[in-house]
Computed example of a mutant assay.
Amino acid sequence: MTYANDMPTAEKVVRTDAGLASELRTSVMRLRRRLAGERHPDNPLSMGQLALLGALYRNGDLTVGELAAHERVQPPSMTRTVNALAEGGWVARRPHESDGRQVVVTLTEAGRAVLMADRARRDEWLTRRLSALTAEERDVLRKATPILQRLAQSD
């Protein structure tokens, strides 16, 4: 029989939902920091700016309000980010077709290029790390990925 005191600390902690939440939070944040550190040194964009480019890449043209809701930031903050990206040529702005008060944001070729280069670099780093795992560990991650996506998108 195995007693709780005989288990490694991490195993003891994840036996409860609160423990799992704590361990998962820590692991995801550390992985995020590692991935953020893999940015190309010549990439001038912030993580928030890259996230905005990614949202446009996945969803197509969006209004500033839609981008703000998607990224869970206030519209004035999103307006500042969009303005900076537009000045750099990463996105373009145009008036909304039916509502002149709104601005639609479009990903430019320059924005797409910097996003894809950034993703390729990070994916390469993560692919190297994944190759060091066992087939069973990679299978667990394949199964966990949709769950993590659902958690990230839930309110």
Score class of each variant (00 low, 15 high):
Arg58Cys: 08
Asp99Ala: 08
Thr145Ala: 15
Arg128Cys: 01
Thr145Trp: 10
Gln74Lys: 11
Val13Thr: 15
Asn83Lys: 01
Asn83Leu: 01
Leu35Arg: 08
Leu20Trp: 13
Arg15Lys: 12
Pro75Gly: 02
Val91Pro: 01
Arg129Gly: 01
Gly19Pro: 08
Arg121Ser: 06
His40Glu: 12
Glu71Val: 00
Leu85Met: 03
Leu133Ala: 13
Glu136Arg: 14
Ala36Met: 08
Gln49Ile: 04
Ala68Glu: 01
Gln49Cys: 07
Arg93Trp: 04
Ala51Pro: 03
Glu38Lys: 14
Val105Lys: 03
Thr145Gln: 11
Ala69Ile: 05
Arg39Thr: 02
Val14Thr: 08
His70Asp: 10
Val105Met: 04
Glu38Ser: 09
Asp61Ile: 05
Asn59Ile: 00
Lys12Trp: 08
Arg142Asp: 13
Arg33Asp: 13
Thr16Phe: 11
Leu20Gly: 10
Gly111Arg: 05
Arg138Ala: 11
Leu62Glu: 10
Arg150Ala: 13
Val114Lys: 03
Arg15Cys: 10
Val140Cys: 08
Ala110Arg: 14
Leu20His: 11
Met47Ile: 13
Leu67Lys: 02
Leu107Trp: 02
Gly19Ile: 11
Tyr57Val: 00
Asp42Arg: 15
Gly48Asn: 02
Arg121His: 10
Ser22Leu: 14
Ala69Cys: 01
Gly89Thr: 04
Trp125Leu: 00
Leu115Asn: 02
Arg34Pro: 00
Arg101Glu: 13
Met29Asp: 13
Trp90Pro: 00
Arg30Gln: 09
Gly88Leu: 02
Thr81Val: 07
Val105Leu: 02
Asp17Pro: 12
